[in-house]
Each structure stands twice: as structure tokens, then as C-alpha cells.
Computed example of a mutant assay.
Amino acid sequence: MQDVSRLTVDEDRIFSATHEEILNGETTDIYFVKTRDVLKSGSLLGTDVVAEVFTRKSGVFAGLSEMLFLLKDCGDIKVEALSEGDEFSSREVLVRISGPYGSFGMLETVYLGMLASSTAWATAARECVVAAQGKPVLCFGARHVHPAVAPAMERVAVRFGGCQAASCILGAKLAGMEPSGTVPHAAILIAGDTLKLARLYDQAMAPDEPRIVLVDTFKDETEESLRIAEALDGRLSGVRLDTPGERGGVTPELVRELRWRLDCAGFKEVSIIASGGITPERIKVLSEAGVDSFGVGSYISNPSPRDMTMDIKMIDGRPIAKRGRLPGLQENPRLKRVL
């Protein structure tokens, strides 16, 4: 607690924690610091315990690599866990930590937060990927979260959720790929005409860069798509529909008409990408209508939570638990030693 009292922060900064602040435990809850001091005063900080982590909803497990990075220098502890990307059931044990409580107890807030966020992102991404049935899903969620966590979110969506690409530069690089994306409506508005911007894009980008153009800025989406396809003369890879809700959004009827008109005009190779409020339910409907790939933002970045709970289940080899929980270790043969 004396260390906490001495800690000072400069408010002239970005308010997310630095890596050093996270590793130093400065983002943990204060009650774990108090717990450390109280147990130390009673010579109990080195008590040997086994703790288990679970969540009440099923999902896709992720966040373990960051947790292990946090714990790798925390002394003589043993960690068993599922593999990242594994699907799990409600209340299944995801992680088991064994060792002196003082070695890992104070950081509980930190690693549970890592697991909770990453698992929720991975689960939401996997739901979209499953709904798409093999069609590409791209993660466009960086703008919906704090930039400090955007790379972590998009990395997880690709690595463990199954998305084929990410737009956040750092997130894509952490996932081992190059970032994907075209240009926003802002570029088209500044150019004053979608076709003008499409030609500038075609001239400025490298030959291997796919020519994908937004077609809902100024004119009817089908009209705009046809004039761009004709002008780029075989170089147009795809058109992106991001029609706002004020105009009805991206509907199955719009997709069917666009696909029909492109095909009739001889542009069967031009793909249709849909973005804007995409969910697994909308993916299924739009896929049937003819959408070839999906850009998903807020459904992945702001998912249904997967709150993580850690319970001490053994103390000095004796089964124990708080009321409402079963004492002793819960069997899970899928757990593997990871630290």
C-alpha cells in the first residue's frame, strides 16, 4: 500500500496503461494489494494454493499468450490451460494456476481482464466466420474501441476467431499479415466523384493491390458499380456496400439487384463486400443474396461479455471453496501444462 501511495501519474498523457504499468501491477484492483499486505503480515503470502478460472458462458478461448507473458517472471508457479482457439462450454475450467499465492494473486484483475476481453472478441469473430460458411470475414473494429486495445482485438479476431484479415495496422502485423482495407467515404467526398476517386486509386496503388471501391457515396449503388467497372476495364476486384441505415442499409434486395446487373454487364468477376452493422444473422441473409465477403466492426469489437472468475480450490493440498462452489479441482482432461 505504501507503493500505491507513492505512485504519481501525469495527466498530460494518453490515459491507457503502458506495458510497464501493466506488468508492474498498476492496473490491478486495490483490494488485491491490500490482500498482499495483510497476508504478508501474517506470514501467509507464501501459502500454496491451486486456483481455477472459468466463465459462465460458452465461447472460444483466447488471451492466454498475454497472460503467460505477464506471469512468466512470477516465480515458481505452474499453469495449465486450454489452447487458444479452443471452444469451451459453460463453467468449464479454462486455466489452472498452482503455486504460492503471493506469486500471482495480486495480478488477478490483470490476467482475468486479458482473458475476458480476448475470449469475447474471439467468440464474436468465430460466430461471424461460422455464419459466413467459408466466405471471408474481415475485422474492421478498431474504430469502435480505445486504440490501446484495438491491436489486441484484431489480432485475436484473426488468430483465434478465424477472420481472414484486419484493418488495424498493428493488429494485422501482430497476427502475422499485412493490413487490409480500401479508402473511406471521406476520400470520395473530397474527390467529389466516386469514379474520379476510383481512377486516382487505380493510378496510385501498387499493381497487386486489389481495386475495391465504395459505391454508396453519391449515386445509386448499382449505377456507380457499373460505371466504375467499365472505367477500370477488368481491374476492379470488388465493390463495397456500406449503405447507411438512413437509406435502409445494405439489404438482400440491393445485393441481388447489384449482382444481377454486374453479371448481365459481363462483370461476374467483380465481388460484393458488405459492411456496416454486420452480425452473424445478417451475414447469413446477405450471403444467400450474393455477398462474397464481410467487413465486421462493432459485433466483434463490442461483443457479449465473457466474464472470467478465478476461485481458489486447494490450499496446502486440501480441497476448499467458498459457499456455492464445489471444493477441490474440477476435472478437465483438455488442460495442458503451458508454464
Rank of each mutant, 00 (worst) to 15 (best):
L197S: 03
P179C: 04
A204I: 12
L200A: 08
A175Y: 15
A172C: 07
A187W: 04
D193G: 12
L195P: 05
S180T: 14
M177I: 15
Q203H: 14
Q203W: 13
I188W: 00
L197I: 10
A172V: 15
I169P: 01
D193Y: 09
P184V: 04
C168H: 10
G171H: 09
V183G: 01
I169W: 11
C168D: 10
Y201R: 00
P184W: 04
L170N: 06
A186G: 01
L200K: 06
Y201K: 00
A175C: 11
R199H: 12
I188M: 05
S180I: 12
H185L: 00
I169A: 00
T182Q: 04
A191M: 09
S167A: 11
K196V: 15
L174N: 11
I190D: 01
L170H: 08
L195E: 09
D202K: 09
H185D: 02
I188S: 10
I188G: 10
H185Q: 00
G176Q: 07
A172D: 08
D202Q: 14
G181L: 03
L195S: 03
Q203P: 04
L195R: 02
K173Q: 11
C168F: 04
K196I: 15
L189D: 05
G181M: 02
G176K: 02
K173C: 06
A172E: 07
I169F: 13
G192I: 08
I190V: 13
T182P: 02
Y201N: 00
A204L: 10
A187D: 03
G171Q: 07
S167R: 08
L174F: 12
T182L: 00
D193M: 06
D193R: 01
A204M: 11
M177G: 05
K196H: 13
T182R: 01
D193P: 12
R199W: 11
Q203I: 15
D202M: 05
S180D: 02
Y201W: 11
A187M: 08
P179W: 06
G176P: 07
H185N: 03
P184L: 03
G192P: 08
I190M: 09
P184D: 05
A175G: 10
E178V: 15
S167P: 00
Y201C: 00
I188P: 06
G192W: 04
L174A: 13
Q203E: 14
M205I: 12
A186K: 05
L197D: 08
L200C: 06
D193T: 14
L197G: 06
G176S: 04
A172T: 15
K173H: 13
G176A: 02
D202P: 10
K173M: 06
A187F: 14
L197F: 14
A172N: 10
Y201E: 01
M205P: 02
Q203F: 15
I169L: 07
S180F: 15
A186I: 12
R199I: 15
P184G: 13
L174C: 03
M177C: 01
L174V: 14
L189V: 13
A204H: 04
D193L: 05
G192V: 15
S180L: 03
D202S: 11
K173W: 14
A186H: 03
I190E: 09
H185S: 03
M205Q: 08
V183M: 06
M205K: 10
A187C: 02
T194M: 01
A191R: 07
A175W: 15
